[in-house]
Amino acid sequence: MERFFTVIGGMGTAATNSYVRLLTERTGATKDQEFMNYILVNHATVPDRTSYIMDHSQPSFYPALREDILQQSQLHPDFMVMVCNTAHYFFDQLQALTTVPLLHMPHVAINEMCRQYPKAKKIGLIATAGTIADHIYENEIKAAGREVTLGDQHVRDMVMQLIYDDVKGTGKANPDRFKEILRIMRDDFGADVVVLGCTELSLANEQVPLPEFNLVDPQSIIADKSLLLGKAFRQSVANGRHLLAEVQAGRA
C-alpha cells in the first residue's frame, strides 16, 4: 500500500472508533477508492496513561507505544497520529524513535483554537488527571498567550467520572454530567472556550452535541488534519510534506 498514514489508537477503543467515524464521514468520498489509506493500530492493552503519570510505580505505557512506533516505522507511512491526549506525555521520546513525522495533537489543536477563537482570552481545560498533571495543554495554551482555568477539584472529579465511569465504563456519555461540567467552566470560572483534552470527551461531544458552548475538540481537529494531509500526500509527496510542515507550524 502506498500513500498511507498510521493511527496509533486503542486508548480507548471507543474514542478511537469516534476518530475513524469522523474521518470516514468527512472524506466526501463517492466511491471506495476515494477514502483514505491508513493502518489502524488499536492497541487496547496499553497500560492506563493517567495511572502511570500520577504514580510511577504503576506500569509504564511507554514500552507498548515504543513497540508500536518502531513496528509502524518499518512500513514507512507518510505520517502518524496518536489519538490519545494523555499519551503525548512521551511525545518527544516517541518522535525521537523514528523519522516518520508524528503529529502533536495538543499543539495542533491549540493552534487551531487560536484561529477559531481569536478573541478568546480565558481558556477552560478539562482532561484526565494525568493530562492536567503533565501540563501539556496548559503549556500550549499559555504559549499561545491565553489564560488557563482548570476549574476546581469538584469539576475535575466530575470530568474523571465522565471519562472513566461513563465513556470508558459504558461507552456512553452522561448528558447531564457533561453539560454541567461545561456550564460550571463557563459560568463559574469564566471560560470563553473549553478545550476537550481527552478523546473520551471528544466522544462525549460526538454523542451529546451542546452548541451553546464554545468548544475545542482536538480529536475532531486531528481528524480534519489527517484528512487534509492524506489527500495532499496522494497528490504528491512534495505537496504532502509542504502541508505537513505548515500544519506542524500552525499555519494550516
Rank of each mutant, 00 (worst) to 15 (best):
M1T: 15
R3I: 12
F4W: 04
T6W: 03
G9Y: 01
G10W: 03
M11R: 02
A14R: 02
V20S: 00
L23D: 03
L23P: 04
T24L: 07
E25C: 02
E25L: 09
A29R: 00
T30N: 15
E34T: 13
F35M: 10
F35W: 13
M36G: 03
Y38Q: 07
I39G: 01
V41F: 08
V41A: 00
M54F: 07
M54P: 10
Q58S: 13
P59G: 11
Y62V: 07
A64G: 00
R66G: 04
D68L: 11
L70E: 15
L70S: 08
L70T: 05
Q74L: 14
Q74P: 02
L75S: 07
L75D: 02
D78H: 10
F79D: 03
F79G: 03
F79W: 05
V83N: 01
T86M: 09
A87R: 01
H88F: 12
F91K: 10
Q93E: 14
L94K: 05
L94T: 07
Q95M: 12
L97C: 11
V100R: 00
V100L: 06
P101T: 04
P101N: 07
L102P: 05
L103D: 08
A109T: 05
A109E: 02
R115E: 14
Y117D: 09
K122N: 04
G124L: 01
L125A: 11
T128K: 03
G130V: 12
T131I: 11
A133V: 09
H135D: 14
Y137N: 06
E138L: 14
E138A: 14
E138N: 12
A143V: 04
V148P: 04
G151C: 07
H154P: 02
Q161M: 11
I163R: 01
G171P: 10
D176N: 15
R177I: 10
F178R: 03
R183P: 01
D187M: 02
D188A: 14
V195P: 04
C198R: 01
S202L: 04
E206V: 05
Q207R: 05
V208Y: 01
P209W: 04
P211S: 11
D217H: 10
Q219Y: 00
S220G: 14
S226D: 08
L227V: 02
R234L: 10
Q235K: 12
Q235H: 12
A238V: 15
A238G: 12
G240V: 11
R241Q: 15
V247F: 08
V247H: 08
Q248V: 07
Q248A: 01
G250V: 14
A252P: 12
